[in-house]
């Protein structure tokens, strides 16, 4: 089976691009790191890629608010091509800062309402392991997941905020991708850790499944809950699509 090409978009200050590249590789894809400007200067990139990943980090140092300049850069350099990519049904995932950028760019929750990622209720950056329950049967990244995923969060602005209408729409449309199990680490509405767009191909989540792709990365020595399963799911969808 051919290994699908996955673009890992990294803006200045993105820093988990290498981690997600390893996850994609282990899941059977061929990752390639690109910058938002390269998406513009080399239009073939998005045409040839089967998967698009917005990696985590502190793009532009989180100045002006997490993900805002990343979103501005994406919109300026590749806005239309990005929407074409999504419209063609190719899977997209934004993790942490990538999720923040997708929300700021209006690609999540898309036409389902308005959302934002605010400062954690703790008021500080927080790095800890969490457990995620996959909810959406529509989302191409989560629909084959049968067990909960364990992985770390590492963010200061991860509190998912939206109005009541949007939550109701997201629930009704099966667009809630993940919820936190047990402790809600940042005060997110409805324990929401990740959402997908109406079509189910665009996933955004705050936690870092790319940091649990090997059994030895599990801090409790458990062999279950690998974040790798999420990437396998997305890669399989891209391959079989």
């Amino acid at each position: 089976m051919k290994s699908p090409k996955a673009l890992v978009v990294a803006a200045p200050g993105t820093n988990r691009d290498a981690d997600v590249a390893l996850a994609l590789e282990l899941a059977g894809a061929t990752p390639q790191r690109v910058t938002p400007t390269e998406l513009e200067s080399n239009p073939r990139l998005l045409v040839e890629a089967e998967i698009l990943v917005l990696a985590g980090g502190f793009s532009y140092g989180d100045n002006t608010g997490a993900g805002r300049l990343f979103a501005l850069g994406l919109e300026t350099h590749a806005g239309e091509k990005l929407r074409d990519f999504i419209a063609s049904g190719k899977p997209v995932i934004g993790i942490c800062n990538g999720f923040q950028a997708l929300v700021r760019a209006g690609l999540l929750p898309g036409s389902q309402g308005r959302a934002a990622l605010g400062h954690n209720t703790s008021g500080t950056f927080d790095c800890r392991w969490v457990e995620l329950k996959p909810i959406s049967k529509k989302c191409v990244w989560t629909r084959n997941l049968t067990a909960n995923i364990e992985c770390p969060i590492a963010h200061g602005e991860g509190r998912f905020v939206c109005d009541e209408d949007t939550v109701a729409i997201l629930r009704a449309a099966d667009s809630i991708a993940f919820t936190y199990v047990g402790q809600n680490p940042n005060g997110s509405v409805g324990d929401i850790a990740g959402i997908c767009d109406e079509s189910g191909v665009v996933l955004g989540l705050m936690p870092h499944p790319e940091n649990h792709v090997l059994v030895r990365q599990n801090p409790r020595g458990r062999t279950t809950g690998l974040g790798l399963d999420l990437f396998r799911s997305g890669v399989r969808y891209a391959t079989e699509r």
Binding site: T124, R128, H208, P219
Partner: peptide, 20 residues
């Protein structure tokens, strides 16, 4: 307060045990 996970190489963290 510190990211001790980035890089995926931290096998034993400053905090460990069944409840981490």
């Amino acid at each position: 307060r510190y990211d001790h996970e980035i890089g995926g190489a931290t096998v034993v963290r400053p905090l460990s045990g069944s409840e981490l």
